[in-house]
Simulated scan of single mutants.
Amino acid sequence: MTSLSPDAASIARMIDHTLLKPEATAADVTALIAEAIELGTYSVCVSPSMLPLTIPAGADLKVAVVCGFPSGKHHSSIKAAEAALAIAQGADEIDMVIDVGAAKAGRFADVQADIAAVRASLPAPRVLKVIIESAALTDAEIVAVCNAAVAAGTDFVKTSTGFHPAGGATVHAVRLMKQTVGDRAQVKASGGVRSFDDAVAMIAAGATRLGISGSAALISGATSAGASSSY
């Protein structure tokens, strides 16, 4: 492996190296894990049906799993059960999707209750990230959802699934999310973060975690142009 520059290495340690394609196979996930270890990413992020994973002994690699993905239109009890099963099967972190329709209807108490149900299913120190689908929300809705997520006990608010037609992360959304949560939670930028410069911009706006599928290409962008991702 070619050694990474300090900047590239530090960004790698913010990445959830992600594979959420419906056609993903066990072999694909094995390759994802190997690449994550080579690149030095913080975690791999996979679908719940891919668990349990085999992480090589001594590897400094967390396992993140999505919940209620990608629509968020699952009953809260189903999301909570899905999260609890993922934890039982070895997940360290859960990335759950809110009911975006509830947010659009102004039902922020319901959004908070949904998140709280999943939070209650996660024993400490397991990490909860709440995907708000920021591109589908107004600024006022982003603020309200972030406040609901913090009140429900989330560790992170996350921009996007990467599957919504409205789009993914933007610098504006990340900055607004960070301004809203302050020191009460962290921010994950995900969806459409395709280049090293994109990653730097998201971090400057307040992100401390990045959801990336094309991590190798993004990291290589520290020294070469043209990094791209299919995420």
Rank of each mutant, 00 (worst) to 15 (best):
A81R: 08
L4H: 15
A103Q: 02
A120H: 04
A166M: 07
C67F: 05
I15K: 10
R13V: 10
A227D: 07
T180Q: 01
I212A: 07
P22H: 05
S77W: 15
A113I: 02
T138G: 06
E133N: 13
S224Q: 14
V181T: 04
G167E: 01
T208S: 13
A26V: 09
H17L: 08
A8N: 02
I87P: 05
A117N: 06
C146Q: 00
D155Y: 05
A148E: 05
G168S: 06
L19N: 14
D7M: 11
S213Y: 09
A88G: 11
I78F: 07
S229M: 07
V181G: 01
P6E: 11
S49P: 15
G162A: 04
L128E: 02
L218S: 05
M177Q: 02
V200F: 07
G106K: 13
C146P: 00
I87V: 15
I11G: 04
H74W: 10
S121G: 04
F156Q: 00
I11W: 07
P165S: 07
F69W: 04
A109H: 09
R209M: 01
A59V: 12
M202N: 05
D99T: 10
S47Q: 15
K188A: 06
Y231N: 10
S3V: 09
K73R: 12
A225D: 14
A36V: 15
G153D: 03
V46N: 08
K158D: 10
A135W: 05
G214S: 04
A207K: 01
A91W: 00
L4P: 08
V127T: 14
G192P: 04
A217V: 12
A151S: 12
S160Y: 01
L20S: 07
L32Q: 01
F156M: 02
L19S: 15
D114R: 00
I142W: 01
H172Y: 13
P48G: 05
S47F: 06
A9Y: 08
E82Q: 06
K62N: 11
I11F: 03
P165E: 07
P123V: 07
S134L: 06
A9R: 15
A222G: 06
D114Y: 03
S228H: 15
A116Y: 08
V66T: 08
D197I: 13
A24Y: 11
A199Y: 06
A9N: 14
L32Y: 02
G221S: 04
G40H: 05
A8S: 09
A149L: 06
V181Q: 01
D60M: 13
